[in-house]
Design a protein around this nucleic acid. Structure first.
Length: 193
DNA sequence: GCTTTGATGCACT
DNA sequence: GTGCATCAAAGCG
């Protein structure tokens, strides 16, 4: 079942936790790739580390739009990052998806990567994730319910004691909030640190 | 194995 | 001009 807008139109931390164990799918001309979401981070509007903290700009406009849309941006000039927009329209909050456990299209993922690596590192980190899934800024603003890019709730059981809360990664401000979540039994698929 | 560093685009002060 | 929600190659051991 594809997750609908009402799933995303809730508290950002709740959405971040519940996205763990769901499956991200991208259907492209090259083929279909999918993977279990194993690591997320929550970004709230009152958070100095959040793009929306200083208000709306052309770059982060998507975050303020409808819940359930993809917010994709370029970081360090090289890498893309994929987020799911949460809360009601006008709120400017999102969940960053940081890592996947590959499910379908692993062949294609290897092709999209220039380097050879073990499968548990294919989508370890937001930049790698977008690369192997074929996500670019072309996907910025697309609704996750009615696009080739969507999230489904599969029957992957996640009990709350498998969810580990940690501080977020790569930030210079507001580092110490427990807003990063990952599944302990998939830790090797997660970016390091 | 682990740590360091350069590549690189774009929004914003 | 600066500072990033990063990655991988190069260097060390």
């Amino acid at each position: 079942m594809v997750l609908q807008a009402d799933f995303y139109a809730r508290d950002t931390v709740v959405v971040a936790r519940e996205l763990l164990g769901k499956v991200l799918v991208h259907e492209t001309a090259e083929g279909i790739t999918s993977g279990i979401i194993v690591e997320t981070e929550a970004y709230m509007q009152d958070d100095p580390a959040c793009h929306a903290y200083r208000g709306k700009t052309p770059r982060n406009e998507t975050m303020f739009g409808e819940p359930g849309k993809a917010y994709v941006y370029l970081i360090y000039g090289i890498h893309h990052c994929f987020n799911a927009v949460t809360r009601e329209k006008g709120r400017g909050e999102a969940v960053l998806v940081r890592a996947l456990c590959p499910l379908r299209g692993e062949e294609l993922m290897h092709q999209r990567r220039k380097t050879i690596c073990p499968s548990h590192r294919l989508a370890s980190g937001p930049g790698n994730l977008c690369r192997v899934m074929g996500i670019t800024r072309d996907q910025d603003g697309v609704p996750l319910q009615e696009s080739p890019l969507y999230v489904i709730s599969d029957n992957i059981a996640v009990s709350s004691d498998e969810i580990v809360e940690r501080t977020r990664i790569g930030l210079s401000v507001a580092e110490n909030r427990m807003l990063r979540f990952y599944l302990s039994n998939y830790q090797k698929y997660v970016s390091r640190r």
